[in-house]
Simulated scan of single mutants.
Amino acid sequence: MGSGPLHLVLMGISGSGKTVLAERLAARLGLPYAEADEFHPPANIAKMASGTPLTDEDRWPWLESMRAWMDQESSAGGTVSTCSALKRIYRDLLRGAAGRVVFLHVRAEPAVITERIQARTDHFMPASLLPSQLATLELLAEDEDGWVLENSGSVDELVERALAVVAGL
């Protein structure tokens, strides 16, 4: 994996499978793990729970908190976290963390994601916000340090594909 801290950010829209993959990767790699939702201030959670999309202004403090956590945990050799990171400017802010920040874009079919979100009972993100997330999502550009992981097959297969990417870093 090279020298210096390696921060893996599992990005993508809500319901794509970021959390399950991130938890498994963190355990396999022995790195600290954080769920981006834990960094949202209560006002952001309330806004999303009411079905209102966040603005860039809502997101900046949240993203800065995440970057600060990544910096704080750099001594562990890196981190694994989830973050929608829908826009390049959000990823650019996170890329400011100490070490190398690599984005793994977890993708799944919108119909599958809608089913997952509707089946959730413990999450504030309503399925009604899925169209706004899809509209906001800017795919990784060729010059960004990252890979796309299609969330198809089993969770174990997805974990193995992610570990293969990490092994090549």
Rank of each mutant, 00 (worst) to 15 (best):
D92N: 14
A27D: 15
Y33C: 13
P5C: 11
V101I: 07
V9T: 06
R67P: 06
A68V: 06
R28G: 05
W62Y: 02
L31Y: 10
G51H: 01
E35G: 06
A26N: 10
G12N: 08
M70C: 06
M70H: 08
L63K: 02
L8F: 11
A43S: 13
E35T: 12
R100H: 12
V101Q: 05
S81A: 14
A27Q: 12
I13N: 05
S14E: 09
E73P: 09
L63V: 09
S65A: 15
A46D: 15
M70N: 11
P5T: 11
G15W: 03
L104N: 05
R59A: 00
G51F: 00
L63W: 04
G99W: 09
A26T: 09
A22S: 09
A97H: 05
G12F: 07
D92M: 10
K47N: 02
A34C: 08
G99V: 12
S50G: 12
A34R: 14
L8T: 07
T55N: 04
L86R: 03
R95D: 08
A97I: 12
D37S: 07
T19Q: 01
R28V: 12
P32M: 07
E38V: 07
K47W: 00
G77C: 11
A98I: 10
M11P: 05
D71F: 06
L6N: 09
M70I: 10
I45W: 01
G77M: 15
A97C: 09
D71L: 10
G30D: 13
S3G: 14
G15T: 03
T19V: 05
G78F: 10
G96R: 09
L6C: 09
N44S: 06
L63E: 05
A26H: 08
F103G: 02
E38L: 14
G99C: 07
G96M: 05
W62M: 01
S65M: 12
L25H: 04
A97K: 03
Q72I: 04
P53G: 11
P61M: 02
A27G: 10
T79L: 08
N44W: 01
M11W: 06
M48G: 01
P41S: 13
P41N: 08
P32F: 13
L86G: 03
E23S: 05
N44K: 00
A97E: 08
A22M: 04
